[in-house]
Simulated assay, not measured.
Amino acid sequence: MLTHIAKTTLSLALALVLTVPVSAKDIPAPTGVPILTISGEIETTNDGDALVLDADTFAALGTVSIETSTIWTEGVNTFEGVSLKTLVDLVGAESGKLLASAINDYTVEIPVSDAVENGPIIAYRSNGEGMSVRDKGPLWIIYPYDQSADYRTEVIYSRSIWQLDRIEFVR
């Protein structure tokens, strides 16, 4: 049984670990429920040939936010998540495409070249709240639609997959 001081110390240590972005060599196997499985031609793995992330490990990759309107929501919303560029860099993908798949097996193809600074994110929060499956979660690829007309095209909208649970990198 942990004492109050031990619990507080453990909580503080965990909070510190989860607020510092992890590097490719530091990604542990998930201890919680996996929310994203990444496979294919990747350099970083933690579960056989795949990189499996639970919610805490995913958030520890580094959170960014986008304020944008979408064609699926009302008004401007704030989305928080991991930059697609961060994820692509983490797994060592320099070219090719990623096949992003949803819980219902719907899959979209996204070129690795979409993963740019201040570009799309894999959102796990909308307006400060976690996203349920009913609300397009737990993960949704969001582009900064209001940033440029280039992000407001049918092609980009088709890449904005929600209920994302796996990504496969192919060359």
Score class of each variant (00 low, 15 high):
G81P: 05
A60L: 09
N104H: 10
T73D: 13
V155K: 12
I142Q: 00
D89I: 01
T107D: 12
G81Y: 10
N104G: 06
T70G: 00
V108N: 11
L61V: 14
S126H: 10
D47V: 05
A100F: 03
V17L: 15
I167N: 03
R159Q: 15
L99F: 03
E109H: 05
A29E: 09
S65C: 05
I142T: 06
G96D: 03
S69Q: 14
S65A: 09
S69H: 14
F169Y: 07
G128A: 07
P21I: 10
D105E: 14
P30E: 01
S69K: 14
D47P: 02
D150L: 13
G62K: 03
V64D: 10
W72V: 02
T37K: 14
E129Q: 14
D56G: 03
W72I: 07
Q163I: 08
G92T: 07
E67V: 15
E41S: 15
K97S: 14
E94M: 06
L18H: 10
V112R: 09
S95G: 14
K7A: 15
S132D: 09
A149E: 15
E109C: 07
I103V: 11
T153L: 01
N77I: 00
N46Y: 09
V22W: 13
D26I: 12
D135N: 11
V76H: 01
G48S: 06
I110A: 09
T8G: 08
V76L: 08
D89N: 11
P144T: 04
I122F: 00
L164P: 00
K7R: 15
K25L: 09
G130P: 05
I110G: 12
S39W: 01
L61I: 10
I103C: 01
T57D: 02
G130D: 11
L99A: 04
D56M: 15
A115N: 07
R134H: 12
T70P: 02
T19K: 08
L99S: 04
S95L: 01
F79W: 13
T153I: 03
S101W: 02
T86V: 13
K25Q: 12
T57E: 03
I167H: 01
G128M: 00
V22H: 07
I103M: 09
Y145R: 05
P34K: 04
I161C: 04
L98C: 09
K7F: 14
A6I: 11
I35Q: 02
G96A: 00
V20D: 11
D114S: 05
S83F: 10
S39F: 01
T9P: 03
L99D: 02
V82H: 03
A100Y: 05
T19W: 06
T153N: 08
L14W: 13
E154D: 15
S65N: 11
G62L: 04
S11C: 13
A29M: 02
R159I: 13
I142N: 04
R166D: 02
V116N: 00
N46V: 12
K85L: 11
L164T: 02
Q163Y: 13
S101M: 05
I35G: 11
S101L: 06
N118W: 12
T73E: 14
L99N: 06
S39P: 03
A15F: 00
I5Y: 06
N46Q: 09
